[in-house]
Design a protein around this nucleic acid. Structure first.
Lengths: 172, 172
DNA sequence: CTACCTGCAAACAGTTTGCAATTGG
DNA sequence: CCAATTGCAAACTGTTTGCAGGTAG
């Protein structure tokens, strides 16, 4: 979260707002807040988490608005929906570039992993099958390094998966 | 769907029944039917579809029983749960080997794709991050060859379609 | 002004759970 | 026999929708 990212974020926001308007959609304070949160979050939040995070600023905002906004952004391909685990879909506000996700089954951390080699292989696979690729996602579920060294908890690792310590920030 | 698969299926059934008993579970007609259906289906059926398919043979069987049985099989790692599409989770009764699924966003077709090269890369990626892999899924969303050549339908191809997961198991 | 948007509540779909009756081993 | 299982219905959870009042452009 440096000055670098700040300007990155505002540029992105500006661009998406323009796209919204261009598509006949309005830019409301709620939408702006949701976009800001999702675009700048490295943690792939759920709709519920976005909602809760913005409660302070928008006490009257409803979950429905969060969902509606996320769908809008999804349509514009400005966010991607991660696989639906038991607890609900998670939204990736990163640039819409296909990439793998490392998901910790214990703490719920989600780490992005842009691996060129990985992408190459997927493309080869798809081409071979004559598939017309539109989206893709790879999720690797397991335990992150810190959860591995942590003493096993009473419950099974995968039982709850609450986001305790979020995924690291390093690109990789 | 040849004689080959027939014997393959019965061997698998026998083995899983043995495992069920070994774990203190019972082998009921309902469970047997569900297993038979899931293990022999190449189409990654949803719980609902399994339920409907067995209605003829077991008119009184409830959806809850289907779910309970699927959970049991999941526990024993005899089926993998594919991602939750809008319409519900899909179950993969194939051997629990991680593999990619090609999902058609228009017709919903799900094609398995066991590609060694793909697996190699995933492992490399995981090792590099120090992740302890427990499951993984690769989702390639797009249009299958036949849907590409078919005339575009009234609705957008991407209207609803979303997730498709491949659940893997072995702890590499 | 006038679509478009918000927030609320009610509707939904898939999945899970509690429990009495049933049944496999 | 008796614990495990079934089937039913009701509860739950995440998501979607309808609509009246509010608001961006």
């Amino acid at each position: 979260m440096g000055v670098q990212n700040e300007s990155f974020l505002s540029k992105r926001l500006e661009s998406v707002c323009a796209r919204l308007r261009a598509h006949g959609h309005r830019v409301t304070p709620q939408r702006l807040a949701i976009m800001e949160f999702v675009f700048s979050s490295a943690q792939h939040p759920t709709a519920q988490q976005i909602y809760e995070a913005l409660q302070a600023r928008f006490p009257t905002m409803s979950l429905a608005t969060v969902y509606k906004t996320l769908h809008l952004l999804e349509e514009l391909e400005e966010v991607a929906v991660l696989g639906v685990e038991a607890e609900g879909a998670r939204y990736d506000g990163a640039q819409p570039v296909p990439h793998a996700h490392l998901v910790c089954e214990r703490c719920g951390a989600v780490v992005d992993a842009h691996e060129p080699a990985q992408q190459q292989d997927c493309l080869a696979l798809v081409k071979k099958r004559g598939w017309l690729l539109r989206h893709w996602r790879l999720e690797l579920l397991g335990l992150c390094p810190s959860c591995q060294s942590a003493p096993a908890q009473g419950q099974e690792p995968s039982t709850r998966a609450d986001v305790a310590h979020a995924g690291g920030d390093q690109p990789y």
